[in-house]
């Protein structure tokens, strides 16, 4: 007899196709995850940029890593939203009563999150190039940047999975992402931390976004990355593992 596991990949492919349709058919999603970060980038470069003292001759270069993180943070809130709706509308139950690998349903959402965020990141980088973003980085640093961003996406996706699976309302499912959206503003993503008051600065320099932003910035500009990359990786992997365990528990319990 054929078992559910033989079809894990094809089942997950069907789930991916389904969720990607959800994204491309939702104007709200496209505006929030792609157009808003681009608008923010335009705003910071062409409106505020002139007044910001970032000790750089190319503010787009300085800004891009933070914009990418904001785009990812808003992207994963939709993963929570989609998971919540699937749970609430009985779609997860329908899939679970069928002979398909149970984990394929959840992994389909995770894969969708990674694929859609990769698309968003590529689009934003292309727009940044048009705005004057330049990088001297070779293929290896670019791969490292891609790796950090995927890891960051996975870490936040599992956080989103906890929210989506345990929320009681639609608002609850996406509200958790608002603090995530603010983290880049209280980091070195837009302005150097030197200018901040002592307490804010202490927070900014020790929260995950700053190390991730600094690591990506250094990689893209061909600077030595120092210990930032290890701190960034530790944050991403740590959040990912902790969130994964909680999300799996919520999945087994509630779905």
């Amino acid at each position: 007899m054929e078992t559910a596991k033989n079809h894990f990949l094809s089942d997950m492919g069907v789930m991916l196709g389904r969720s990607m349709r959800h994204i491309f058919r939702s104007m709200d999603t496209i505006i929030t995850v792609c157009i808003t970060p681009i608008a923010l980038m335009l705003l910071f470069v062409y409106v505020f940029g002139g007044a910001i003292q970032a000790d750089t001759d190319n503010y787009v270069n300085y800004l891009l890593p933070g914009i990418l993180l904001i785009a990812i943070a808003s992207g994963i809130s939709y993963t929570a939203y989609r998971l919540f709706l699937d749970k609430q509308r009985g779609i997860i139950e329908r899939f679970h009563s069928m002979p398909i690998a149970r984990s394929a349903v959840l992994w389909g959402h995770v894969l969708t999150s990674v694929v859609s965020n990769v698309i968003t990141v590529v689009i934003i980088v292309l727009v940044a190039l048009a705005m004057g973003f330049r990088s001297s980085a070779g293929i290896l640093p670019w791969l490292a940047v891609a790796g950090i961003l995927v890891l960051f996406t996975l870490a936040l996706t599992w956080v989103a999975a906890i929210a989506g699976l345990s929320a009681k309302s639609v608002e609850g499912a996406s509200a958790f992402s608002y603090p995530l959206l603010f983290l880049p503003f209280i980091s070195s993503a837009f302005v150097p931390t030197d200018s901040m008051p002592r307490v804010v600065r202490a927070f900014a320099e020790n929260q995950p976004v700053t190390s991730i932003v600094e690591a990506i910035r250094a990689l893209l500009s061909g600077q030595p990355v120092g210990h930032d990359i290890w701190v960034a990786l530790a944050w991403c992997v740590g959040i990912m593992l902790a969130a994964y365990l909680f999300a799996m528990r919520a999945y087994k319990k509630r779905a």
Binding site: R89, G90, E93, S97, M98, P99
Partner: peptide
């Protein structure tokens, strides 16, 4: 699961 199908209370 090979033998059954479920139609839940709310149209899924």
């Amino acid at each position: 699961r090979q033998s059954i199908s479920l139609t839940g209370q709310f149209a899924a």
